Simulated scan of single mutants.
Amino acid sequence: MDRMTQRQKAAIKTGALALILAFGTALAGCGSNADTPNAAAGEDSSAATAVGESGTSATSADSANETSAETRVVKGEFGDVTIPAHPKRPAGIYLEDYMVALGVTPVVQWYHPSWGIQDYLKLDVPQFDISGSPEALLAQQPDLIMVDGGVDQAGYETYSKIAPTYRLPESVLQDSKQILLAVADALGIPEKGQEVLDKYEQIVADDKAKLEETVGGETVAVLRLNGGDKTLALFGIKNRYTGSLYSELGLTPHPLVGEMEDYQQIISEEGLADLDADHIFIFPASGDWDSEENKEAEQIMDRAVWKSLKAVQNDHVYVVERSYWQSGGIQANMLKFEDVMKHLAP
Rank of each mutant, 00 (worst) to 15 (best):
Y263Q: 06
V183M: 02
G217F: 13
V312N: 05
D119H: 09
Q118D: 15
K177P: 02
G236H: 12
F337W: 09
L309A: 06
L181V: 09
P134F: 06
F128P: 02
N333T: 06
A69K: 12
R167Y: 01
P106Q: 03
D97L: 04
E321V: 06
A26M: 10
L19H: 06
T36S: 11
A277E: 00
A139C: 07
I237M: 13
L187M: 12
V257W: 08
G155D: 00
S57N: 08
Y159I: 12
R224H: 07
G132P: 03
V305P: 08
D148R: 10
D143A: 06
L102R: 04
Q140K: 14
L187T: 08
I267V: 13
S32K: 15
K210F: 06
E53F: 11
Q326V: 00
D143N: 10
A297V: 07
K9S: 08
I179E: 08
A61K: 12
Q153C: 01
E212S: 13
D44C: 10
D206P: 04
S308D: 12
G15C: 08
I282E: 00
Y120S: 03
R3V: 04
L21A: 13
V312Y: 11
I280C: 05
L17D: 10
K208F: 12
G236P: 12
A61E: 15
P106R: 02
D152C: 00
W306Y: 14
D35S: 07
D290G: 05
K161V: 01
E213T: 09
S131V: 07
V257S: 10
P126E: 02
W306A: 07
Q6W: 03
A26I: 07
A22W: 07
L251H: 05
P90S: 04
F23K: 04
P87V: 06
G24D: 14
Q109E: 15
S160A: 15
L19F: 05
D143C: 04
K238P: 02
K210E: 05
V215R: 07
P164Y: 02
K295R: 15
T5V: 02
A11R: 11
E201K: 13
P37S: 11
M301D: 00
K210W: 02
E212G: 13
A186L: 04
G52I: 00
E218I: 03
D229A: 00
R7Y: 03
A61S: 10
V319Y: 14
M1D: 10
F23H: 14
G243K: 14
A41F: 08
S46M: 11
K192H: 11
H279C: 01
P113Q: 10
P253S: 15
R7L: 09
E298I: 04
D198W: 01
F337M: 14
I300W: 05
E201N: 14
D119C: 01
A41N: 03
E195W: 09
G217E: 15
L344K: 00
Y200K: 06
I179H: 02
G52C: 13
V151K: 00
A16F: 02
A273T: 12
E293Y: 00
